[in-house]
């Protein structure tokens, strides 16, 4: 178990390192150099020189990478070029919106998909299965931002149950939560559809295994074998999808924040792109990628919790 854990941690560390190299190098690819790119063509030579110095552009590349990574490891993501404030607190503030949104959507997606997939697998080939999978087909085809627009139209504009956009801040938790409900639903529905389908097909496949027949020979009912034996085994491929979904949810959240005018990471990134603030873009992307890698690690841990065969390896 410890060995497995250690190996996964090494893999996670290596992935983070590799990701940081990729992100750093991509920014180096800008036409000209990052400083002149950010300032545009009409920049004063003095301003340019000052920014070059601030970014350390006169140093050799590996040294700059080392300095950048070293600062990040100490929590220093640099200073935003447009706002002239440190990037780290900016990201922290935005994460207070994006992270709860992604987590809420994930919880919602699982809560919807689990009963749906189970029901469809239990009703395999019957009307209930057909209905659930038809709905799932439709759900997968829905672009989340369009669903968001429709949700706003119905629940905010016509019914006036929930706010159409904006975020009041966490000082009023209830209001904050209310403003996250529609975005979370828009994010969660398509993902729930995918999850339900994966769970169903995984369950159906598991139900064909030899040990399911053994369980039936013991006198368990179909439902009992489904819950006691098939579900846990079927969960293994579902976990893989779940891990990947978190990265889609995070990415989806960036888009959805635009529909609901939520002050999250996504809006910050798009503003930074238009303002050519590479320091902010670079840092925000790094945070996003780190989050995805961390979730992959958590999924690996979950594997070990579910599957005893991994614990020994």
């Amino acid at each position: 178990m410890l060995r497995y854990l250690l190996r996964r941690m090494i893999v996670m560390g290596a992935s983070l390192l590799a990701a940081s190299v990729v992100i750093f190098s991509v920014v180096e690819l800008v036409p000209g150099d990052p400083a002149s790119f950010m300032l545009g063509t009409g920049a004063q030579p003095e301003t340019l020189a000052a920014l070059r110095q601030q970014m350390g552009l006169d140093d050799p590349l590996p040294l700059r990478y080392a300095a950048w990574l070293g600062a990040i490891l100490q929590g220093d993501f640099g200073t935003s070029f447009t706002y002239k404030t440190p990037v780290a607190p900016m990201i922290g503030e935005r994460l207070q919106v994006s992270l709860p949104l992604a987590v809420l959507a994930l919880v919602l997606a699982v809560a919807l998909a689990l009963p749906m997939g189970l029901h469809a697998a239990a009703q395999r080939g019957r009307v209930g299965d057909g209905l659930a999978m038809g709905a799932a087909h439709l759900g997968i085809a829905l672009p989340n931002f369009w669903l968001a627009m429709l949700l706003v139209l119905v629940f905010a504009v016509h019914l006036r149950w929930l706010p159409a956009g904006g975020f009041p801040g966490w000082s009023d938790p209830l209001a904050a939560l209310r403003s996250l409900i529609l975005p979370a639903i828009a994010l969660a529905l398509p993902q729930a559809a995918i999850l339900a389908r994966v769970l169903r097909s995984s369950l159906v496949e598991t139900m064909g295994q030899d040990y399911i027949r053994t369980a039936r020979a013991k006198g368990l009912s179909r439902g009992q074998t489904l819950r006691r034996h098939a579900l846990r085994n079927a969960l293994i491929p579902v976990l893989t999808i779940l891990g990947m979904q978190f990265s889609f949810l995070l990415a989806g959240a960036i888009i959805i924040e635009n529909v609901f005018y939520l002050p999250g990471l996504g809006r910050m990134i798009f503003q930074a792109i238009t303002q050519r603030d590479l320091i902010v873009v670079q840092s925000a992307v790094l945070v996003l990628v780190a989050a995805v890698i961390a979730v992959t690690f958590l999924v690996d841990l979950a594997y070990a919790a579910v599957d005893p065969r991994l614990r020994r390896a």
């Binding site: 295994q209 030899d210 040990y211 027949r213 053994t214 369980a215 039936r216 020979a217 013991k218 006198g219 368990l220 009912s221 034996h229 846990r232 085994n233 579910v306 599957d307 005893p308 065969r309």
Partner: peptide, 28 residues
């Protein structure tokens, strides 16, 4: 009926199968 049959399986009639490598639940 299936319910009554279930009560017999494993209690009055037991069965073992050919493939021992796959006949047991790997997670239990």
């Amino acid at each position: 009926p299936e319910r009554a049959m279930r009560a017999l399986r494993g209690k009055r009639i037991g069965m073992i199968f050919q493939e021992p490598m796959t006949a047991l639940n790997p997670l239990m």
